[in-house]
């Protein structure tokens, strides 16, 4: 079975706040849900599917379903995949709609990592039951180090420079000018990025995303519902999901799971990277964007970084609102970034 053309995204809403110390996480979830439902032109009574991840209070579906009084649910899913949870949710919602398990699915994300003081430079206590904990936690890994390692390898293997990585941030800062809710409103230069304080070599402060409060929600619905609404119809035509780990010791940090999910999504959609008019790429750190653009097939390995200094455009237009690098979105997970 394919999800191609079996479901549509009919509603989308991004919370305007980037700092919300006086709004509960549950209320943020409810506010983005309301925003997406109203954007779609639907009612809360139409929602019969609900998807949320670890950022939802309780990390389950029932607390938020109770809070929002979603009382017509017949399909629920609280899959947690960190910052890519919501992309997985949309694909799973499309599968559920295609299988007739629900007709109108709500996906919510919200968090207050800014107000709660989360940082990607903090060691996170992940508990003792994780099989990797006894081997890794003695070294106190933090998020930024785990990305810096990949950036350092990219530099060593492909000759990538800090100036090339900095162009990702420069582009993000230009795009953020047009988002009225952006956290960082000023355009930055390559010099400002490479001269910002070193956080974890080779990543400077401006190679890292902002940590913000807020959230967002989308509505996935059956094509018949989409056609009944007075909005442009956005069909879901392909998806891919995976996890990449240490591969039984064959660690290769030169690529990400995008190298596997991209081809699967393109195959299902029946399109090629060159057909894509707009790519929305996760931008937790500058190196994250470079690796993903390469892995998704928008350019050859090692070429993404060297293509950046030619301008602020990527091989395809990318990240027009720059929600993470400069504008800031909510993260659910108390690291530097997610969502």
């Amino acid at each position: 079975m394919t999800i191609k053309n079996k479901a549509c995204i009919v509603g989308a809403y991004e919370h305007p706040l980037r700092k919300a110390p006086d709004t509960s996480v549950a209320q943020l979830h409810a506010e983005v849900a309301k925003g997406a439902i109203e954007d779609a032109g639907l009612s809360v009574r139409d929602i019969d599917g609900y998807f949320c991840a670890g950022d939802a209070p309780g990390a389950n579906v029932w607390s938020m379903a109770n809070y929002m009084n979603l009382n017509k649910l017949r399909h629920v899913d609280s899959t947690d995949m960190g910052g890519c949870s919501y992309l997985v949710h949309v694909a799973h919602a499309a599968e559920a709609v295609a299988a007739g398990k629900c007709n109108v699915a709500l996906v919510t994300l919200a968090g207050r990592p800014n107000s709660e003081g989360s940082s990607g430079t903090q060691v996170r206590d992940r508990g003792v039951n994780l099989p990797d904990a006894p081997f890794e936690m003695p070294y106190s890994p933090v998020t930024v180090n785990l990305y810096a390692m990949c950036a350092m390898l990219h530099m060593q293997k492909y000759g990538t420079t800090s100036e090339q990585l900095a162009w990702v941030k420069v582009a993000a800062s230009h795009h953020a000018q047009h988002n009225p809710n952006a956290m960082l409103k000023n355009v930055v230069t390559v010099e400002e990025v490479v001269n910002s304080p070193m956080i974890s070599d080779p990543l400077h402060r401006l190679d890292c995303c902002v940590v913000s409060d807020g959230g967002g929600a989308v509505i996935v619905a059956h094509p018949d519902v989409a056609k009944s609404l007075k909005r442009p119809v956005v069909n879901i035509i392909g998806a891919g999901e995976t996890t990449k780990h240490q591969m039984g010791g064959k660690v290769d940090l030169t690529y990400t799971g995008a190298a596997w999910t991209g081809p699967r999504a393109f195959e299902e959609a029946g399109v090629k990277p060159g057909d894509i008019k707009y790519a929305s790429i996760y931008d937790s750190f500058t190196i994250t964007v470079v690796l993903q653009i390469e892995d998704l097939g928008f350019c050859k390995k090692a070429k993404a970084a060297s293509s950046l200094p030619t301008g602020i455009s990527f091989p395809v237009p990318e990240n027009s609102r720059s929600t993470r690098m400069a504008a800031g979105s909510a993260t659910t997970i108390p690291r530097t970034a997610a969502g």
């Binding site: 949870s85 790519a279 994250t288």
Partner: peptide
């Protein structure tokens, strides 16, 4: 496209 977790040790990836 999104990434969850950390690319330096374990992560999730999803494309739409």
């Amino acid at each position: 496209h999104g990434t969850g977790g950390a690319i330096g040790h374990r992560h999730g990836s999803a494309t739409l």
